[in-house]
Design a protein around this nucleic acid. Sequence first.
DNA 1: CGGTAACCTGGGAT
DNA 2: AATCCCAGGTTAC
Length: 401
Amino acid sequence: MHSLSLATVMKRTRSASCKSPSLPSTPLSPQTRHKTCCSKPTSVSICYRSRKPKPILGSLNESSKSDHAKWVPLNLAPQELCLPLTFPTGQTFRWRKTGPSQYTGVVGSHLISLKHIENGDVCYYLHHTDSEIDARTALLDFLNARVSLTDVWKEFSASDARFAELACYLGGARVLRQDPLECLIQFLCSSNNNIQRITKMVDYISSLGNYLGTVGDFKFHTFPSVEKLSLISEEELRNAGFGYRAKYITGTVNFLRAKPDGEEWLKSLRMLDLQEAIDALCTLPGVGPKVAACIALFSLDQHHAIPVDTHVWRIATKYLLPELAGSRLTPKLSSRVAEAFVSKYGKYAGWAQTLLFIAELPSQKALLPPQLRTVEQSKHTVEEDSETEIGGRETTSVFQS
DNA sequence: CGGTAACCTGGGAT
DNA sequence: AATCCCAGGTTAC
């Protein structure tokens, strides 16, 4: 039950509300729907699930009256960055929704909130930082701001009509540029796992880092260094509910610790070609082709890395390589899929994959008109789509996740 | 080299 | 209630 409550191993004296009180295991989270990326910010309060009288402000009272004075424009238009399509869609598991169209997380040692304002533009708020200049620089770097999503998508759309149509509804879905160590550990947790549990596991590990502050109900920490990570034993991780991934983590941490500077070694993979980077990553325990591609794409500037999973496989067999429909996903076929993506979309193929992947997520499908929703799993090969348009009206039905 | 069976866990479906 | 299936896979035969 309390398998993943982080209080156990942590040196934090106060084992306060570490039970993650509002992890949305229940399907009742009405506010997770956002019809477009820029919905109107009607209420200012943080979304509580149960009304507790206690006004949760954490240590920093960021909700004082002259609050929005501290919100700084990022000069990123909504078509360049849509927060709900970028943060809760599986590239990072360390950001939290802390308000209507608002997300909070850590970049380096900076604790930052991002939100859309009325016109859809993005602003940021620094809860904790030693240097506002550094924070902004780090944030822009983290957001891959040097890449123009508009330009990149223009090319995808030119070569793929379906992409062009999806792009109309899912604009602003960016690829982040995360810290390699942080990315690596997160995706070690991701194998054969679901987003909710991955998030809890990542949260458990993160609590070893330096505490930066609390926003909403959530505590935030810097991501722990390799040295810090080496303090956790495999047994502790197993007891915390990591399952067989426990040995992946400790094994990889030990591997990195054996290097003169493991973190620097990881970063140096940015200099390599994609295949070399993948090969290097695959020598780490628990890292196979899929996880390696995720790390390469989301943290190592390998913009044409293609993480081939079941979703992408489904997409590929439907639109790209129909002759492979019906086969099982093997490593070899997986690299064939990756090649197909790259030859169709070019050097930013990973960015195209990201959008197509998001379009497959049950949580995002509601954003799409029915004819753009690809058909479900493999279960019923019979497609009974003739029945789905009951209401006649747009389906805002309940598809939480 | 290609195919298969374990591997941990929890939530939802049957 | 018991069981199966699935979740952005990897590893060992």
